[in-house]
Amino acid sequence: MVVSDSARRPDRASPLFPRGGGEGALLGVMAIMSFLACVTLAFALGATRLAHIWERGLSGQATVQIADVAGIAMEAQVAGAMQVLGATPGIGAARVMTREESEDLLRPWLGDADLGAVPVPVLIAITLDPGAPLDVEGLRGRLAQVAPGATFDDHSRWNQGLTSASSAISWAAYAVLLLIAAAAAASVVFAARAALQAHRDVVDVLHLTGATASFIGRQVQWRFFVLGGGAGLAGLAFAVVFAIGFSVLVGTGGSALTSLAANWDVVLWLLLVPVAAAVIAMATARFTVRRFLAEAN
């Protein structure tokens, strides 16, 4: 068989380190880590978002509850309260709820009992005006003068509880993300060291031929960059399949894709996971090569 040299010349120079070794194992480990990172990140983003939604829903609302007080007619209390509310900056709209509406609100606590004989407090539903600040203490003082049975409730207790719970959840999730990143970096250190150890002969020849540590690092780091990025994308794909499968199992399968589309910004955030995996793999491999060479000489 006669093959001319030029026909057989490889298009690209071969990599200085042969392929193979523990790369498959590292790929698997990094893919699993990326999957866990995607799930954790989605969880953290979800918790923050849910808290925002609750906060927005609650913080636009307030109620004044007026209880029956001996010596003053309920109607007088309500009228006085409405007058005070109407004159207070920061209150957008105030509406006295009908007895039916109030009973509906109480029904979960009192059951289907006939409430006809029970004195039900009157509720005034308030929509706050986001454009003007509300002086809550001043309002409470003025309400007390005209309607001693009135209590103003702006749900801030609820709000605080929710916000601190959701931020605790987010911070815990971000801490878990950091742990996952550290574990991924550690597995890259092991894999890179094993690869260098397995190709000790190559390292020695390069070294003795005058290769610098950064030259040797470059031969390795791009491979780890590609490996980390590939593993990250695989993990992200698993996570998306997992999310769809999960919503199918809990019976919201039809809306999974639409909710994925609606939360496209979450998906964009999740794209950071493969990017981070690639960068972590590359930087760690580079660092490991330098350490290895420094120890070797």
Binding site: A13, S14, L16, V205, L206, T209, G210, A211, F215
Partner: peptide, 9 residues
């Protein structure tokens, strides 16, 4: 490629 190694380095 072996012979070219020092030049590549």
């Amino acid at each position: 490629e072996n012979v070219a190694l020092p030049l590549r380095i």
